[in-house]
């Protein structure tokens, strides 16, 4: 579904991504882990076309993203990024309604179907009661959930998430990720929390200084040694009731 092949990206003379390759199969949930500055966001941005890679190729559904218009890509891939600005105060409903833009012709008005999709998306993330509130008056966590609702309302087969839960409380984190997982969409997410990643990802890529240092099942890549290499702390993965967790020492 997503196929990243030998992608490099440089700012000035600083390489941010070096020969990164990554695949996500349809229906799979794949996590990207790595310390700050390891290139997680940069990698995601090259996939959703905010950045143009210096080298390599990125395919979504077998088609190069650079050959697609923004609109075509937005019908395939929805993005929850770390951008929560708003120049003017739109209501939550209006913000989520923006997700319907790529599926409409410029001159087509939004119809009842679009509003139903928006209402459902808001209901899914549990924010129906905020539909007519101003987006700017929301807390960081609420804004993030609105963005998740918007991504749902885009009704794409693929979702890319850049730390989708960094403003959420622990309950909302788990609920949001469960929702995403239950949606059956193909998911690629940059994450910070190792235990949460282990719980929700089918596979994990470890990124360090812009290169993939390891990839595989959570149990294979989240080893004490790797965690020490990436984050410079001592950690101990352990199983509890069949789940993988990471304990820091």
């Amino acid at each position: 579904m997503i196929d990243v092949a030998h992608v490099s990206y440089t700012i000035g003379s600083t390489p941010l991504l070096r020969d990164v390759s990554l695949q996500v199969q349809p229906g799979e949930s794949v996590g990207i882990l790595g310390p700050n500055g390891s290139g997680k966001s940069t990698l995601l941005k090259t996939i959703y076309k905010v950045l143009r890679p210096a080298d390599g190729e990125i395919l979504v559904n077998g088609q190069s993203v650079l050959s697609m218009s923004n609109r075509e890509l937005a019908r395939k891939v929805a993005v929850v990024a770390q951008e929560s600005e708003a120049a003017f105060d739109y209501t939550v409903q209006e913000v989520v309604l923006m997700a319907r833009y790529p599926s409409k012709k410029l001159t087509d008005a939004y119809g009842p179907d679009d509003l139903r999709i928006v209402a459902e998306a808001l209901d899914t993330v549990g924010l129906s009661h905020l539909a007519s509130r101003g987006y700017l008056s929301l807390s960081g966590g609420e804004k993030q959930r609105v963005q998740v609702a918007r991504a749902f309302a885009q009704q794409t087969p693929v979702m890319i998430l850049d730390e989708p839960t960094n403003h959420l409380d622990i309950g909302s984190q788990i609920k949001t990720l469960q929702l995403l997982k239950a949606s059956g969409k193909t998911i690629l997410a940059a994450l910070h929390d190792l235990s949460i990643a282990a719980r929700f990802c089918d596979r994990i890529y470890l990124l360090h200084h812009g290169t993939v240092v390891d990839s595989g099942l959570p149990g294979q890549v989240l080893t004490g040694e790797r965690i020490r290499q990436l984050y410079d702390i001592d950690a101990e993965p352990f199983q509890y009731k069949g789940q993988l967790y990471v304990r820091f020492l």
Binding site: V50, N70, A78, A81, E83, Y90, M98, P102
Partner: peptide
């Protein structure tokens, strides 16, 4: 909603 958001919305 910001340049990046606009791009990802098509």
């Amino acid at each position: 909603m910001g340049d990046q958001t606009a791009i990802t919305l098509g």
